[in-house]
Computed example of a mutant assay.
Amino acid sequence: MNAKGKRPEREEYAWVLDYLPYGNPNDKRPTYQKKPLVQAVGDKQFVLMELIPKEGYTPEIQSRVYIGEGDRKEIDHVKRRIRFNDLSSGSQLELPFVLEQSVKHHEERFVKFFNEAHPITTRLHMLELLPGIGKKLMWAIIDERKKGDFKSFADLHERVSAMHTPEKVIVNRILEELKDDNIKYRLFTRPIHHRQD
């Protein structure tokens, strides 16, 4: 959950979801006017976006590309931020797999979430926002982490056996947040009304 009033950090890397050589299929302009497009998801805040690739570059699906400041090898620029419903069907199919790669890539960050998650209100804990985690599993995680921080997803699963695949639980929460613009609590994503320029 991001601190209010703090300017959101820009994404520096993105994961390629789909390559559209003839641009967005919803773009009604004639084909010759359309440029190739890449649909991607940001590496840190899971911002969905369209990128313009550099001429002659065809990105691989599920590859991680640099989109930050300075010299970009593959991407010319970020075109715009998009919503889940703007994604091509190919992008929507790839998204869970790409998110899992990203979550595993940043395992330390998400293990830290399990170690530091706290109550949001007197009746609701951050852990309960994760799909499949009810009061019983929440308390099992809290009781176990009192004995010492979790070191990895494997450590978490080993110590809390009902927590089968922590990375998939995180991915499912990110998907919920990406699909619902009006979701009340955001743990891992940024709302669409912030501009990604």
Score class of each variant (00 low, 15 high):
A40M: 04
I82W: 00
L17D: 06
I120M: 10
R159S: 10
S91W: 00
S63D: 07
H105G: 02
A154I: 14
A40Y: 01
F114P: 08
I141D: 04
N182Y: 11
L99Q: 03
R145G: 10
V98G: 11
E176W: 11
L130P: 02
R123F: 13
R190C: 00
K104A: 12
Y185N: 08
R81I: 04
R72N: 11
K28A: 11
F46H: 03
G42R: 03
K136T: 15
A40R: 00
L99N: 03
L95S: 05
D27G: 12
I174V: 13
K179P: 01
E100H: 10
F113V: 01
F153Y: 11
W15D: 00
D143F: 09
I183H: 06
P25A: 11
K136C: 10
E128S: 09
T165C: 09
F153T: 12
I61M: 13
G68S: 06
S89P: 14
A117R: 08
D155W: 01
K28D: 10
R145V: 12
R186M: 03
T121V: 10
R145Q: 14
V16H: 01
K6W: 10
V111K: 08
I133Y: 13
P131V: 01
P191G: 03
P36W: 02
R72S: 09
R83E: 14
H157W: 08
G134F: 04
N85T: 07
H157S: 15
G5R: 07
M163Y: 05
F188D: 00
I170L: 01
R80V: 03
P8Q: 09
K35C: 10
K147W: 01
G148K: 09
K135S: 15
P53W: 00
T122E: 11
P59A: 11
Q39S: 07
V65Y: 06
K112M: 02
